[in-house]
Amino acid sequence: MDTEIYTPLRLDEIEGSLQEEILENLGVDIETCLECGKCSGGCSNGHIFDYTPRKIVQLVKMGDEETLSGMDALWICLSCQLCLDRCPSGIDIPRILDYLREKAVKRDVRATRPNAKLFMELMLKEVRDKGRISEVPLMIRFKKKTGQYLKDAGLGFRMLLKGKLSPFPSRIQKTVGFKKLLSESASENKG
């Protein structure tokens, strides 16, 4: 194990730049955070996050981009918007995470959790191709790439029984229009 040298974070040496950047680019003002933790309490995946949504807001305040781009939470956030929905100050944490993910991808920062990035890529491909995600084909593709055929099989079977999983892929009807939309939003992001 690495031994960490005791180096306290110097508050006066971190500029509020990330915080300002997020305010400027996204219009999300984290200064309104009440540090209440309601976001974390309600987060769909908070139990497996290394940094809970409240802590993520704090890390932004601290300008700790290194931790932010290397944390698991960045890749296992479901973008379910629950945190935003529950936040008394209406802080758009999923938007912050989107932004940080984009930054991390550009800087080619790899997720530490194995296959998190692979899963993201496969999922996005599915969206691009079919306009929607079909869990079973996505899982098959993921398992083919990782070789983890039996992991979560029990859970998958139970979901199948309850009708939560459909073995048949489905796609939206107007894929052409949808692809146009996607490419438009991509060029907007670049601009």
Binding site: Y6, P8, L9, R10, L11, D12, E35, R54, K55, Q58, L59, M62
Partner: peptide
């Protein structure tokens, strides 16, 4: 910083 549980200085 008790919100993050890390020592800080200023």
């Amino acid at each position: 910083d008790t919100l993050m549980g890390i020592p800080v200085e200023v």
